[in-house]
């Protein structure tokens, strides 16, 4: 059996199917990123709040979702979401049927996990910001929100970038877990190819190589973003 022919595009090759799966994996990761970042920043704010209750809630959120297996979070969001939506739909229009979209469920679950870790990274970045930045902005007469938008946030991103880059690489790998809730990502498409061709070692090996390639391309992109975010920072003489 010619293994390379199995990877060809077209009706008897699996190349196009694997590529479609890889594209869904990338789309899922890219869709999760902004959601996870925004939620993570929000949780970081909650954990820095002056209100004890808000601080406690933010801390509990981060502890729970960093402690739960990602797989379990996905199941909880997928099945729990189904029950929640059914109850809601039952209130609006009794007897109607709703299905949870797997892509959205995967995105929410992965985003929640991402945000729990991201809040930790943002918290660390806030801690590294010197007080003088706030005081200087205040002395210039900037309001609180303007200070955050123009002074603090750009520096926060620079400080948080190495940590966030690691989270992105972890996210890319965690997307493979959504294959268990029937989303046609790279790993699931590979599984289908294996069932038909009976070549598990070859196909799962190829899937691993594709994941590796995605990580490598990401690392190159991350290095570029890091150079860009450090452009204004003077090197010590």
């Amino acid at each position: 059996m010619d293994l390379l022919r199995l990877l060809s595009f077209g009706p008897d090759g699996w190349g196009d199917d694997l590529l479609a799966g890889a594209s869904l994996t990338i789309r899922l990761a890219l869709a999760t990123l902004p959601f996870g970042l925004a939620l993570g920043l929000l949780v970081a704010f909650a954990r820095r709040s002056q209100l004890k209750l808000v601080r406690g809630l933010g801390h509990a959120y981060a502890t729970v979702f960093r402690g739960l297996p990602e797989l379990l979070t996905i199941f909880i969001v997928y099945f729990g979401g189904q029950i929640l939506l059914k109850d809601l739909a039952g209130l609006v229009a009794p007897g109607s049927q709703v299905e949870v979209n797997g892509f959205i469920a995967g995105m929410v679950a992965l985003g929640v996990v991402f945000s729990a870790y991201a809040s930790e990274v943002f918290l660390g970045a806030f801690g590294n910001m010197s007080r003088g930045q706030y005081e200087a902005a205040y002395a210039l007469g900037l309001r609180r929100q303007t200070t955050f938008r123009l002074v603090i946030f750009p520096q926060l991103i620079r400080l948080a970038l190495p940590g966030l880059a690691n989270l992105w690489l972890a996210l890319l790998k965690d997307t493979s877990l959504v294959s268990v809730i029937a989303i046609d990502d790279l790993l699931r498409m590979t599984g289908i190819a294996v069932r038909v061709t009976k070549e598990p070692f070859f196909f799962f090996g190829v899937a691993c190589l594709i994941y590796l390639l995605m990580s490598m391309v990401s690392s190159i992109g991350i290095a570029a973003v890091e150079r860009w975010s450090n452009r204004g920072v003077g090197r010590p003489a």
Binding site: L169, K173, D174, T175, S176, L177, S179, L187, T190, G191, V194, P200, F201, F204, G205, A207, C208, Y211, L212, S215, M216
Partner: peptide
């Protein structure tokens, strides 16, 4: 090892 998902590695060993 660090660039590939644990689930894919498990499939590679178990089914492979």
């Amino acid at each position: 090892v660090r660039g590939t998902p644990l689930l894919a590695q498990t499939f590679l060993v178990y089914y492979g």
